[in-house]
């Protein structure tokens, strides 16, 4: 299992890392109880500041996806944590729907047909849920 990082990516560095971990949890590759590498290790391997990794971990903790315990490190709580919090889920769904709409609009503006966009989304979904039970 790996975390990928692109120095040329437009997203902030902490968001890239958080997105990667979020995706691993969504795919079911990281499950409840799995440990995440120490902040120092990840920062060293990716060649970024350790505060950046710490910010990513804090963001994931705020979302309820991981828990950080002093002296123990970060570990995955549950990928269905959001489902236990309907208010947070609704708020999150609204935000995600906006993001999805933006991406779909960009694909349409790039000249992709409706069927091509559908195929692309289906492929991504298949990849995302491949590892989940």
């Amino acid at each position: 299992m790996f975390i990928r990082f692109d120095y040329d990516d437009r997203r902030p560095a902490y968001q890239q890392i958080a997105d990667e971990i979020r995706e691993l949890i969504a795919r079911g590759e990281l499950v409840e109880g799995d440990s995440l590498p120490p902040v120092r290790q990840l920062a060293g391997d990716l060649g970024i500041n350790l505060n950046t990794v710490a910010a990513a971990y804090r963001g994931l903790q705020d979302e309820g996806l991981i828990s950080i315990r002093h002296g123990v490190g970060a570990e995955v709580v549950s990928r269905k944590q959001m489902a236990n919090n309907p208010a947070a889920l609704r708020k999150s769904e609204d935000e995600l729907r906006k993001s999805l709409r933006t991406v779909l609009a960009q694909l349409a503006l790039a000249g992709m047909s409706r069927s091509n966009i559908m195929n692309l989304v289906t492929d991504e979904l298949r990849g995302l849920f491949k590892g989940t039970k």
């Binding site: 299992m1 790996f2 975390i3 990928r4 990082f5 692109d6 120095y7 040329d8 691993l24 990281l30 440990s35 995440l36 590498p37 120490p38 290790q41 990840l42 391997d45 990716l46 060649g47």
Partner: peptide
């Protein structure tokens, strides 16, 4: 390289 990866294993 501008794209790198890190293992989650410690």
């Amino acid at each position: 390289t501008v794209r790198v990866a890190s293992s989650l294993k410690t």
